[in-house]
Design a protein around this nucleic acid. Structure first.
Lengths: 151, 151
DNA sequence: CTGGTTGCAAAGATTTTGCATTGAA
DNA sequence: TTCAATGCAAAATCTTTGCAACCAG
């Protein structure tokens, strides 16, 4: 589990200051296990200016401490990087919980595509209905998940 | 190769009218092999209102005739669906050219993830530097590609 | 005719920027 | 002290919506 302090240390190592604002923002980010928007952080962490939130999100992205999720609708969502290396995401379209995974099969498959050019990077997201959301949707059939996330 | 007429036919089949505006927009879309933004279409197809362009893009997305690319920076980009079925994208970070591919290995890999929940969908994009852009970057070392696309 | 489609402008939503002030080292 | 970081509000971007006019079937 990544802690706010670890992230703050990395920020400091990167030549940035571990301010109180950043600590408060990180506490909020660490407390969530799902994808959130910048605006949700603005609402959640009271007393911080909107500009500070957006600037901090940008900083964390650049440092690789946050990942930008490519859901299809609305504002972009972000999630904390649990692993430092390259990884992919498993997003529940019901509750928005985000898990990470890395699968070497994918990397092998990418090799097969290298005829199309030098591979510079890739982005993989898998949308699931997690077991607890499956249970919920069986008991409440009317409920519809965040299908906007689907490709 | 998909033609504007084929797409217009599909639009009509879907219960929408094959108007002159839509035809002009489609001609512009078909002429490009890369990802474009809604705003680029507004500039490119003169005489069409901004609202019409955005509404048409939304219509084409809903019908599955356009794909939304999840690049990281700026406004979302769209590209024409060449295949009708499910597919993935190969995007050149140099020139923005988009190719499609489908690879059963990925689908097999997804099966292995099904322990995490029922898979509802997925999104895969691979960023490459295509052969012609590789040649260019060797002759002009100062040039830097659209690395914003990279995860 | 009739209802889908369009253009325009206004409104909405999201993000960035200028600038004076504050705060960490 | 010094320069990064912050807050605020204005501006910039991108997208949607209300409404009257228009057009395909």
């Amino acid at each position: 589990m990544v802690t706010a302090k670890e992230i703050l240390d990395r920020i400091e190592t990167g030549g940035h200051r571990p301010t109180a604002s950043r600590r408060r923002l990180l506490d909020a980010v660490v407390a969530r296990g799902d994808g959130f928007t910048a605006e949700e952080l603005v609402a959640e962490v009271k007393g911080l200016g909107r500009a500070t939130v957006y600037r901090t999100v940008r900083l964390l992205l650049k440092e690789g401490l946050l990942c930008k999720l490519s859901l299809q609708d609305g504002a972009p969502r972000y999630t904390l990087s649990q692993k430092l290396g390259h990884h992919h995401h498993l997003v529940c379209v019901g509750c928005g919980v985000v898990q990470e995974f890395s699968q070497s099969v994918i990397e092998q498959m990418l090799m097969q595509l290298s005829g199309a050019g030098a591979i510079m990077g890739h982005r993989i997201e898998v949308y699931v209905l997690c077991p607890s959301c499956q249970a919920k949707s069986e008991s409440t059939p009317g409920h519809s998940p965040r299908t906007g996330a689907l490709a």
